[in-house]
Nucleic acid binder design. Structure first.
Lengths: 334, 334
DNA sequence: GTGAAAGCGCTAACAA
DNA sequence: TTGTTAGCGCTTTCAC
């Protein structure tokens, strides 16, 4: 049975439990002879310390939780992979909890994770209010926010250079002669939505191009809503000659819509996007985009956790990650 | 602080800890009046039971672990999503551990998870030996194997109808006049590889078509190896007129290779595949394939866990999941 | 270097 | 219905 515990080892090795504990943790002097004897007994009985008991005693679980909206979204899983890469190095394990984009469910998950005493929380929160996560910090659980920002919370935050990226992409379209540009944006309850729209707006303003209201959509995060937005927008007389998609999901929806409308990227409509587009592996022309390396973001979150969990952190990090502009043939000069 | 515990609640409410425990768990009679008082105190102090302490005491963590090779592979994340869907309903949470395809790392992860006392293990193991997981079962931790089978272990296993699927796909090619068919297979240490090759072989045999050794490749699971295999295979004089790719990753590699060779699917080479191909969203023609619904597999694993974790299971499930044959225009009649 | 013992927060006999 | 109490398996002071 796996029911062998520290007491059994102590009895059989003829020492006290504290000595066994010292051998396990190697944190206090133990004579070489005793150490060897204990280790042999542990091996023979295939003993493995009970991490739950240890956690209770030490008030530390060596576990970090990641909260995301969707397990099957590769953008999030990039973050997860980068984070796990770091955590496993630190001897921590990662719990991934997904909310399906539901705020209430996210809050329930956070409660559960707090009850389970995770040592830290990394969250790409779908909540627009910071209250729940603020509660975590109050309870002494460090929080790292990734991808999306939250106002009014003193947590480590890692986000993207949204304004600059959106500005550059829009500018690229403008410089190629476009002035009827549509934006397929994510919801404005999300900081990315706000900042990307701002970048878009600023570029338009700087080049003295008026923005038509019908050309600004706030699809939610769903592909289907992006699809509908594009369908609607492309049926407007004097429709856009170019589209700016605010993230990878928006691109998926847009591509479906364009296909149904029998419109070809480049020939019939120019396109730029933010995000790491998996479609670019297959389509021609590829979509010009500002690539977000979500793996790197996960790694960065891990860096912060390293400091936080070892108690070395004396500040609250506010990090903006750069995107990489990749120019392909999706913009027609007009 | 979040340091409030059951004793504090008991003191303030003027009852014993056991009464508080009874209120929390609602498993023993408590007078309505006392119950209300206790609940009010809990709410006021924002008390949340410590799940670690409870786990230690109850020898149950309400946590299930999923072991996979890669977080960014949507096939695995489909399983994860289906499983999480079920577990959250049961009040369990899911820990996802990824090995990166490294057997040694997988074993380390299992040790860690066992130490953390997860209540059950779901694994798409990359190990070809069942020993480690057998050890888990011996220690009383139920194991559900998904996707891949393991011989010599008495665990619940859920896999695919590999033989039949591979047979049908191959037959489809044959019936369209192909007899020079190449197979881009996964490694034979994996049960899927063996069974899919068997199905392929049987079909060829039944139609009296000899199999050329150079047309049978064992790329590992990596896209790059699939790429190399296809490159090599297509340079053989009298090269294959059709390819059978054993999974989605093999398809990715194959498509890259064909593109570099300037060969077009259908026109220059016919193609079939097993797996849920994300590329089919973008390419024309889509690849005819036997779709594996990994979400459903995760749900099924959850079904089994429901029985196992409530102690209702009296057998060891051996399940083969059907694939869905989707015919598209990737096969040329010759 | 080593051992005895307290206690992490909770549940579940057992007693009342 | 309610309270008392003995642990779950471990770490860590404090003695020796």
């Amino acid at each position: 049975m796996g029911e062998v515990n520290i007491k059994d080892i102590a009895n059989i090795a003829g020492v006290s439990v504290s000595t066994v504990s010292r051998v396990i943790n190697d944190n206090y002097p133990v004579s070489a002879e005793v150490k060897k004897r204990v280790q042999e007994v542990m091996k023979k009985l295939d003993y493995h310390p009970n991490a739950v008991a240890r956690s209770l005693r030490m008030n530390r679980t060596n576990t970090v939780a990641l909260i995301i909206a969707d397990l099957t979204n590769n953008f999030f899983m990039g973050i997860a992979k980068g984070l796990e890469y770091q955590l496993s190095e630190m001897g921590y394990s990662l719990v991934i909890a997904s909310s399906g984009g539901d705020v209430e469910r996210e809050q329930k998950l956070i409660d559960m994770l707090v009850a389970k005493k995770v040592d830290a929380l990394v969250a790409a929160s779908v909540d627009s209010e910071p209250d729940k996560l603020k509660g975590c910090i109050t309870q002494g659980i460090p929080v790292v926010l990734v991808d999306r920002l939250l106002k009014g919370i003193s947590a480590n935050q890692i986000s993207w250079n949204n304004f600059e990226s959106a500005y550059k992409l829009t500018e690229l379209l403008i410089k190629n002669g476009h002035n009827r540009i549509g934006i397929i944006n994510v919801h404005l309850s999300n900081s990315n939505g706000v900042e990307r729209l701002d970048g878009f707006r600023q570029a338009m303003e700087d080049y003295h191009i008026p923005i038509r209201k019908e050309f600004v959509s706030q699809a939610n995060f769903s592909e289907i809503q992006a699809y509908d937005s594009v369908l609607k927008m492309m049926r407007i007389p004097e429709r856009p000659t170019a589209l700016f998609c605010a993230n990878n999901v928006m691109v998926e929806g847009a591509l479906s819509a364009l296909q149904d409308l029998q419109l070809k990227v480049y020939e019939d409509i120019s396109m730029v996007a933010m995000g790491n587009l998996s479609c670019n592996k297959y389509i021609h022309p590829k979509i010009t985009c500002a690539v977000q390396d979500s793996f790197k973001m996960g790694v960065k979150a891990g860096d912060i956790l390293k400091e936080v969990l070892t108690g070395k952190q004396s500040y609250t990090a506010q990090i903006r990650m750069d995107t990489e502009l990749k120019e392909y043939g999706s913009i027609k000069k007009i």
